[in-house]
Simulated assay, not measured.
Amino acid sequence: MSEPRDPLVRDLDARSLRGLAHPLRMQLLDALRYGGPATASQLAEKLGESSGATSYHLRQLAAHGFVVDAPERGKGRERWWKAAHQGLRFDDALLTDTDPVVRGAADMYLHEIATTQIRNLSTWLGTRAEWPEEWNRVWDMSSATLRLTPELAQELTEKMHALVDTYRDRAADDDSVTQVRIHTHLFPIETD
């Protein structure tokens, strides 16, 4: 029996990956997922792009089902967009697809995710003095080096994800709540 899929998380396939694997499209989708509905003009200002570029790439994201209209927000001709899903699930098989275009898109997608995560951390480091002291006492940037089998690495990853899931809605009604970003990385390294 297979594990039930979360309807709020979209599984990437070869076709959808080709529609998403562009740095600006990935930034637009992240901005909508984490910042809520917005117009092409608002996103252009936020990301330092032209509204023509953001409008074009939003239409491409819509064509691949990543974003949808948010008509409850629009007035007149103003078009608001929102993310269609809360998360994405990447299938490692895309890295070994028979189509070199798919493999290239998969590689580009993963590198853009890594770049975005580094940018998130760098932004925090550059702005942490602007945050209240209680946030400056609890942030984390740690690393650990373990000796694991592939099976143990998979188990650890699943347990970390399960632990994060237990915190999803725990502080929903607290006035001091803010969004936090959690990045996990687990990968083998060469040793001497």
Rank of each mutant, 00 (worst) to 15 (best):
S2C: 07
E3S: 13
E3I: 09
P4H: 05
P4Y: 06
R5Q: 15
R5H: 12
V9L: 06
R10W: 01
D11T: 11
D13G: 13
D13Y: 03
R15I: 07
R15N: 07
S16Q: 04
S16R: 12
A21T: 03
A21H: 04
L24C: 02
L24I: 07
R25F: 07
R25E: 04
M26N: 01
L28K: 00
L29R: 04
L29W: 03
A31P: 05
L32D: 00
R33A: 01
R33H: 00
R33I: 01
G35V: 00
T39S: 09
Q42R: 12
K46L: 15
G48V: 04
E49Q: 14
S50E: 06
S55Q: 10
S55R: 12
Y56I: 06
A63K: 10
H64C: 14
G65Q: 01
F66E: 06
V67I: 06
V68K: 11
G74I: 03
G74C: 05
K75T: 09
K75P: 03
W80A: 03
A83E: 01
A83N: 00
A84M: 02
H85V: 09
L88M: 09
F90V: 07
D92M: 11
A93K: 01
L95E: 10
D97S: 13
D99Y: 07
G104A: 15
A106D: 03
D107Y: 07
I113M: 11
A114Y: 01
T115A: 15
Q117M: 14
I118W: 08
I118L: 15
R119E: 14
R119P: 05
S122H: 11
S122R: 11
L125V: 10
L125K: 06
T127L: 13
R128A: 15
E130H: 10
E130W: 00
E130K: 05
W131M: 15
W131P: 08
N136Q: 15
R137T: 06
V138Q: 11
W139K: 02
W139G: 12
W139H: 14
M141Q: 12
S143G: 13
S143H: 07
S143C: 05
A144T: 04
A144E: 08
L146R: 06
L146M: 11
R147P: 04
L148V: 02
L148H: 04
L148S: 00
L148T: 02
E151F: 06
A153E: 08
A153G: 11
A153S: 13
L156F: 07
T157I: 04
T157V: 10
M160I: 09
M160F: 10
A162N: 00
L163P: 00
V164A: 12
D165F: 00
D165P: 01
R170S: 07
A172V: 08
D175F: 08
S176K: 02
S176A: 14
V177R: 09
V177P: 07
V177S: 13
V177E: 13
T178M: 13
H183C: 14
H183K: 08
H185A: 15
F187P: 06
P188T: 11
I189F: 12
E190H: 09
D192L: 13
